[in-house]
Design a binder for these strands. Sequence first.
DNA 1: CGATTAGTTGGTTCTGTCAACAAACTAATT
DNA 2: AATTAGTTTGTTGACAGAACCAACTAATCG
Lengths: 409, 409
Amino acid sequence: MKSLVRQRKPRHERITRINSKVARDINRAIILNSVRQHQPISRTKISDITRLNKSTVSDIVATLIEEQLLAESPDLRKAIGRNPRNLTVRQGRHFVGAISLNSPTTSIAIVDIDGTVRARSELSTQSDTPRDLIGRSMKKLMMMRASVGTHQFRGIGVTVAGIVDASQARVVYSMNLNWEGVDLEALVREQLADVEIVSAENDAKASALAELLLGTHDLPSNDLVFVSFGVGIGVGATIHGRILNGYSHAAGELGHMTLVEGGRPCVCGSRGCWEAYASDAAIIDSYLSRKGKAPGRPAPTTIEDVLRASNNGEAEARETLSEAAHYAGIGIANLVKAFDPEAVIVAGTPKLAWDIFRPVIAQSVEKNTRLRHHTPAQVLPSSLTEIPSLLGAASLIIGYVFTDYRIAV
Amino acid sequence: MKSLVRQRKPRHERITRINSKVARDINRAIILNSVRQHQPISRTKISDITRLNKSTVSDIVATLIEEQLLAESPDLRKAIGRNPRNLTVRQGRHFVGAISLNSPTTSIAIVDIDGTVRARSELSTQSDTPRDLIGRSMKKLMMMRASVGTHQFRGIGVTVAGIVDASQARVVYSMNLNWEGVDLEALVREQLADVEIVSAENDAKASALAELLLGTHDLPSNDLVFVSFGVGIGVGATIHGRILNGYSHAAGELGHMTLVEGGRPCVCGSRGCWEAYASDAAIIDSYLSRKGKAPGRPAPTTIEDVLRASNNGEAEARETLSEAAHYAGIGIANLVKAFDPEAVIVAGTPKLAWDIFRPVIAQSVEKNTRLRHHTPAQVLPSSLTEIPSLLGAASLIIGYVFTDYRIAV
DNA sequence: CGATTAGTTGGTTCTGTCAACAAACTAATT
DNA sequence: AATTAGTTTGTTGACAGAACCAACTAATCG
């Protein structure tokens, strides 16, 4: 029997119709973004790019200047005709709080809306409860705020290594922190109730957004894949400049993608996962077995030890890293086939040993996409000057301020 | 005489800003879609769902009825209050031409805007030149049109097994047809110059759209992955109801995803590709080697032979298919990790031997996503009653008519 | 039992408001 | 004078809101 009661639609199916307010919001975001991407830029140029009427641009720009999101400065170029009045994203007025939750270290920053880091701090993370860790982080953030002299945060962004329901700012599951079902928004608001936005996201996904908004690579398509190699492997993709979330918030959980059917056993219980070959843990294991050493004796070997040995020219270390690069390359080639991004951005150990990883990965991608009759995706090291997941946390809010709209049917 | 068909912007014009016309178009599409998804539906219900004002809905619906895209019929339910006037997508007025180019058979159909197939035909494809094959297909389509008694096509949709630049209706490369750089729009317009839309797309991608628009599975999220197992393996993903294209039109070219590093050699020159384990070609090879037979003697073995043998209970055939199912499952599990869709839709050989494939694939997906703390993606056989790529071709136009807008920053 | 009236829901009409646009204008510069 | 940047003014189009009309059921009453 058909029920007469209309079921509440899940959030992702929400239909957004256009009315004058929504239209204004969208055009506002378009203008804000064109300033961000092309600054310094004049009103007339914005009008050319966006095809919005000059008067419309002037009108919206006026409100953005009033909101202190844009700043105006004269252009001193010597050209015929009236000089343009340049527009830039205004610094020093809008700040975001960024928290990258991780074990053993949680990073905290205050970031200007233009991406400049204003303050930076760390906490050592013991096996805190969610409330304790968020509480400590927020208190730290508020202390930093006092010293920076900012009054309010535009929003608080939080990243977590794990599965995060960004639509609810909720940690579904984090192996790293051993958390499950944590409402981050509520915990943040316990400390700072009146903040405008609280946003949370998986670290690799947010890092992809950071690379797009704050990185220096020129990626006009806004289609990229970010791969973070660390204890595990995290992947985040952006499609048309938006994070690919997935139906159950788990798109890009590719650390356990099968690369070698029946291969090395993995911590996940399966075999032949990418992480079993190209993560820091795998590198360390492989290095130790090459050296004929048992783990943890005399002292635990870290990834830094391997990198140091490699830099000193030690053969075993270099072989180990080459092997990891081989598997990193196969995995990345698979990513390229799946998402076909303009570029794959790599962070973590491969970036630290880029001379070893770059050629191997590039060759693997090229070889595997040879049939496709076009130039293969670029593989680039992350251009971010801070921990990607921390700038990622900031990007969540910055992205929200700059492009706060969504149309879906 | 006033044309039924609204005059529309050229297809490739990228909409950036919102003005009143764009707003109207978007709201129009939202209403049209809500009718398509919930029909029969009243104006008031549309207003509830879309949050558009009743007066706005009435206004837009009036134009849609005038365009003969919607039809009105009284509701005969006995409930208190005035009876609603039900709206449905109107049949018999708007038709699309659908062409699925393939070797050795090209399929052609005339499809009503609501997805009903009105006429259906096939051509055997020799090694035609692009112009010859499109010419023959279009002539056939025009003959069929005469017999169906339709006057004009709303658009022509074409699918190809290969890489297609949908934004230009251009085949970048098709191994199957041995085509490269073919401007399909131009070739179609040589035969039928005045058609409103010519749209082309990769077969698997279009099939995904067909499953969404015309399939019977209930997938509210509009995030799905379609996997077509045939001579090769094709993958198409939809994100929020839109095809994931990729930067170089090659997203989802996952037939050559590495699953078994260093495994079976593949036609592509690499090793351990998915296609080398789960395509029809791989199944046939595996079957023959199990039977100790050389290929092509006495007669070439086809996938139908294997399926027939399996249905007759032959052990070798069943083992072969189980093995293929195992690898299909691993590959699909990787897709689930990458895209995290609500469902994976499977077509081709696995659908034909679903009793063998379903449990193996389902187990593989479940086992591989166990760590994720949620119900795994469903794996479903295609619900389409026609060749997916043919309905896919139709869906390109139907999708265009129903949701023709794009917002990009 | 038929007529009347209240109540409910579907849909339309009319008016106000808002935002984008076009064109004419002012401003600043070589 | 020529050129380019940006503003002002009036117009247009579209959505929202509220009152209104339409169509129906259910209850009530003579």
